Simulated scan of single mutants.
Amino acid sequence: MGKKFFSFVVAIFMLWGCSAEESGQSKNIKGMEATVVHVVDGDTIDVQLKDGRKERVRMLLIDTPETKHPRLGVQPFGPEASDFTKNVLYQKQVVLEMDVSERDKYGRLLAYVWLENENVNRKLLEQGLARVAIFPPDIKYLDEFEKVQEEARQSKRGIWSLEDYVHDRGFQDSPKTTGEASKKDRDGCDIKGNINSKKEKIYHLPDGQYYDSVIPEMWFCSEAEAENAGFRPSKR
């Protein structure tokens, strides 16, 4: 009887260990402890470290649809991804696990975010609220993440429920947020509104030097309308 009970206990622990490994959980995550103080969007959060410093963190190996992009606007499943991250992480104690790179070109920390031994990056993929985004050399969980993504794709969860929405560089523009769609809804409005790399809002008239090369975020029917929206005229 004692041997049978011992064998049963061993089997249970072995099964638990396999389940933890398959789900991406780990009891020995090494990283920085932090408190999530703000959720920017689905894959970006603000945290306060134990020493009091505040840092912006970009989750590694995933990409969620946009909610605040100056050109793309709000993409399908962007708000759902943002809400998921907020509900799961806001004001929670987390561990930030680094990979090879410490920061991206914007100065944000790059990390896998762990909450109570669960990888939140992975959870977003499971829910169909993120795609795998590969930026070597930070690929520690790539094989695992791609497997989870494929399961979500096969099940048509979230972003995978929309045909041809996900591509290698991100997500297709929502028809409601593209400049071309806006133009079709407003025939005769041919002034292009563009936001450049310096975040300057500039409008371009049809006879302007850069008009043909500009990809519009918005279309306007008059210069007054463009200026009321905060755009200035192009200098050429």
Rank of each mutant, 00 (worst) to 15 (best):
N121D: 14
D138P: 01
E22P: 01
K54V: 08
N194A: 12
C18V: 15
T177I: 01
A81D: 09
L61P: 00
T178I: 10
F13R: 09
V10W: 09
H167K: 02
Y203C: 01
E80T: 03
K27F: 15
K86F: 01
K156Q: 15
A34G: 07
E55N: 05
F84W: 12
P136W: 09
F145C: 02
C189F: 07
P233W: 01
C189N: 13
E225G: 11
V74N: 06
H38P: 00
I159Q: 00
K199T: 14
L125Y: 01
G24C: 04
S82P: 01
E227S: 11
K201C: 06
Q127G: 05
I134V: 15
T178D: 09
L129V: 01
P136V: 13
K156E: 13
S155K: 15
K147T: 11
A130R: 09
G24P: 07
D51W: 10
E163W: 10
V39W: 01
V40H: 03
L61D: 01
P65L: 09
L110T: 00
G230S: 11
D51R: 12
I202G: 00
E66R: 07
P65A: 12
D63H: 06
H167Q: 03
F8S: 14
D41K: 02
Q75R: 06
T85A: 01
V88G: 02
K156D: 11
E102P: 03
N196V: 07
V100Q: 15
T67M: 06
S182R: 14
V95F: 10
A226L: 08
I191G: 07
F8N: 08
S182F: 08
L110V: 02
R122A: 09
T178M: 09
S197L: 11
E66Y: 10
L109G: 09
D212I: 04
V10I: 15
T177Y: 10
Q149P: 05
V10L: 15
K147Q: 12
T44G: 07
G188C: 13
N194P: 06
I62K: 03
K198F: 01
Q48L: 02
S182N: 10
P70C: 06
P136T: 11
G158H: 12
